[in-house]
Design a protein around this nucleic acid. Structure first.
Lengths: 205, 205
DNA sequence: CTCGATCTAGACCGATCGGTATAGATAAAA
DNA sequence: TTTTATCTATACCGATCGGTCTAGATCGAG
């Protein structure tokens, strides 16, 4: 009759995985206990606020990871290296598309209304950090903003399509395309090749 | 004490909206009755298979709309006009990003495992139809496939980011960018401007 | 009109929901 | 070892879940 003892720090990634795969509504307490191996007692010990606190803590944890491995480097390190590092980190984090973005999952349905600022800040900071890095390698502000927005958006879309089509190569393909768009090589720290022909924005319809 | 009588055909779009906003798990029967105005009795009259049948019928309905307004035109009509029409139709259908893609919502969480073929065929056909249209306007097969994949993926990603950031202009911006990528103007049926410099695909990491 | 078919409303069902309470097991400090 | 705080397991709670059933309202055919 062995009893497993958990550390809160070890529990959060387990919870993250459950919310990621099932969404907030789909992650019932019984499924959470099943998949994490923690009993309700343990869960409510670590997260007295219940399911909502679990999700909030998980969101914070994800945000923290991105700050450390993606946002800060983009904001503070040498921009080209940071951007190259971003493709690498994103590919690893999302397991080449096998793993979904928790924040994206929450953003899509009305779970968004439970954690609006947590969801918002994640994407805003990502786009912003990337755009500033692009400015620092010489893009004009407008182009940088558009490219950054497009990059983050494409990553999210690639994750959706990966799950939908189960095309294992899709995610890496999307990342490669993005790396080209930003005029950066992926495999080496080779510098800018040719300037982008920035076309003016066009109105639709 | 007036009683409202519904037609099944009118009910499906109401259901679609509920599943879209809440996801499959989030769409409880009580919320469905609230938001559609139909009682449980009516719902089970039209959909004896319950919630799962409702979702399946809704998925078929969405697929049908896309076949009629997007896939068939891409497959059969003059390709440039069809692609221009696609931007227009997509913008209208998704209300410039105010409305989410039901199929995308289902694809992200494990609801995917309930309707795998319905979800798969929707994206596959969209990408395929667009790629073929691109081939017909002179793109080589490989480029066409990549561009098509990128377009569909970006639309999904734009929808995710729209909900996350509530940036009203984001969706239209993404569509404009895509239209440029495909070397097509949106507002008029102006033809191709300049050839794409097709760079070779690069491996990541 | 009558009458059967269609459709709606809502009471009701067992199961499961998120959450609480508590008893006992374990770890760390004395 | 004893004590105390921490942590786990589970029985239990009222509410809500998806789904069933039935009584009656409404419709079209004759």
């Amino acid at each position: 009759m062995t009893r497993t003892i958990f550390e809160k720090a070890d529990v959060i990634p387990l919870l993250a995985e459950v919310f990621r795969e099932l969404g907030y509504e789909g992650a019932t307490l019984s499924r959470i206990t099943e998949r994490t191996g923690l009993s309700k007692g343990s869960l409510y010990h670590f997260f007295p606020g219940g399911k909502e606190e679990m999700a909030a803590v998980v969101l914070d944890h994800v945000h923290g990871w991105f700050i450390e491995h993606i946002f800060k480097p983009l904001e503070e390190d040498e921009p080209i290296a940071a951007i190259v590092g971003m493709w690498q980190a994103v590919d690893v984090y999302f397991c080449s598309g096998q793993r979904i973005c928790l924040v994206g999952v929450f953003a899509l349905d009305e779970t968004r209304d439970r954690f609006p600022q947590a969801i918002n800040r994640y994407f805003i900071r990502w786009i912003d950090a990337l755009a500033r890095a692009l400015v620092r390698i010489g893009k004009d502000k407008k182009t940088a903003a558009l490219l950054a927005e497009n990059a983050v958006l494409s990553i999210q879309g690639a994750l959706v399509l990966m799950r939908a089509t189960a095309d294992a190569g899709l995610f890496k393909r999307a990342l490669s395309r993005l790396a080209e768009d930003l005029q950066l090589q992926c495999e080496t720290t080779q510098s800018v090749r040719k300037p982008v022909k920035t076309t003016t924005k066009r109105k639709l319809s």
